[in-house]
Simulated assay, not measured.
Amino acid sequence: MPRIPNAVTVITGASSGIGKATALAFAREGARLVLAARRPEALEDTARECRALGAEAIAVPTDVSDGAQVEALARAAIDVHGRVDVWFNNVGTGVFGPYWEATAELQRKVVEINLIGTMQGSSAALPHFLRQGGGVLINMCSMGGWSPTPFAASYAASKFGIRGFSASLRQELTGKPGIHVCAVFPALVDTPGLDRAANVSGRRLEPKALYLTPEAVAEVVLALVRRPRAEVAVGWEATVARVAYGLAPGLTETVSGAAIRAALRRAGRVPRSEGAVARPIAEGTSSRSGKPVPHARGPSLGTLALGGIGLLLGAQWLSGAMTRRG
């Protein structure tokens, strides 16, 4: 494993949210940072904050949906440092609302940024890992990569795709023990991301749920470099979503759809917006959203165990009921 001090670390989506929090976390550990995002000024602000913590950091403005720009990002890392030890594919966006209410172009852009951007980042990183004989590739997935996300269908498609892509890469790299492919699946995180997403629902996006902090996700990313794992959930909701959809996919789809429809009926009206999907916007340059949101603490093993037992019993009851009806 690369030691984090001096590890050359590429982080995309570093101008805000999880990317910014992760850049600062790696800076505190003494990593050498190559930071990417579409907004040059906000990206340079993150690099400046990292340098103030004593780390080396350069900003390379990059649109990850553009393969040539992603290759230029990798070349910048090699030109400055001669190697790449960690590559964190972190960019993510979405369109919220009924799928048919957004243009096909806007939905396609979500997949280009989330899935194709991850694939292009991986294509840029892996040749250097293979040449070096080691490296850690970390792909940002989501709780939505394990279970459906109604009213964010293209987002769900991209996250399911990232999970499958990451799992496939791991098998292709069998026999390369120094190279690791990891996927991170956080629950809802307090970042500017919701405000920057496209919203064609006409309703305000204010989930009434506990949020993870972006710093909590950043700590998981640091831990993956120290001890790589194939898939890691962040937040007990992500674990429950994984178990629930694995045991009772139909019920999970029905419940999640009903919950979001109910929330939409209660939400206030707002203008429809394309957010930052098609092009960058100035708003949202901090790690957190700045809103007064409740933050979740890490669940105890007892909480997870009780949740798992409840899901198992529920699945068994449903199975028995369906058998009796049959």
Results as ranks from 00 to 15, higher is better:
residue 17 G to S: 08
residue 23 A to C: 15
residue 24 L to N: 14
residue 26 F to Y: 12
residue 28 R to T: 11
residue 31 A to S: 15
residue 32 R to C: 13
residue 33 L to N: 00
residue 34 V to P: 13
residue 34 V to F: 14
residue 35 L to F: 13
residue 36 A to Y: 02
residue 37 A to T: 07
residue 39 R to H: 01
residue 39 R to Y: 01
residue 43 L to G: 14
residue 44 E to L: 08
residue 44 E to D: 12
residue 44 E to T: 12
residue 48 R to G: 09
residue 50 C to I: 03
residue 52 A to D: 15
residue 52 A to R: 15
residue 54 G to M: 09
residue 55 A to D: 12
residue 55 A to H: 12
residue 58 I to M: 15
residue 62 T to W: 05
residue 63 D to V: 09
residue 65 S to R: 09
residue 67 G to V: 06
residue 68 A to P: 01
residue 69 Q to W: 02
residue 70 V to L: 03
residue 70 V to E: 01
residue 71 E to D: 13
residue 78 I to R: 15
residue 79 D to Y: 01
residue 79 D to S: 06
residue 82 G to R: 05
residue 82 G to L: 06
residue 82 G to C: 06
residue 88 F to K: 00
residue 88 F to C: 00
residue 88 F to G: 00
residue 90 N to Y: 03
residue 91 V to M: 10
residue 92 G to C: 05
residue 95 V to C: 03
residue 96 F to K: 02
residue 100 W to H: 14
residue 101 E to Y: 09
residue 102 A to P: 02
residue 103 T to F: 07
residue 104 A to K: 07
residue 104 A to Q: 10
residue 104 A to I: 12
residue 106 L to R: 01
residue 109 K to S: 04
residue 110 V to W: 01
residue 111 V to N: 04
residue 112 E to N: 07
residue 113 I to A: 06
residue 116 I to H: 07
residue 117 G to A: 07
residue 122 S to F: 03
residue 123 S to D: 09
residue 123 S to G: 08
residue 124 A to E: 12
residue 126 L to T: 03
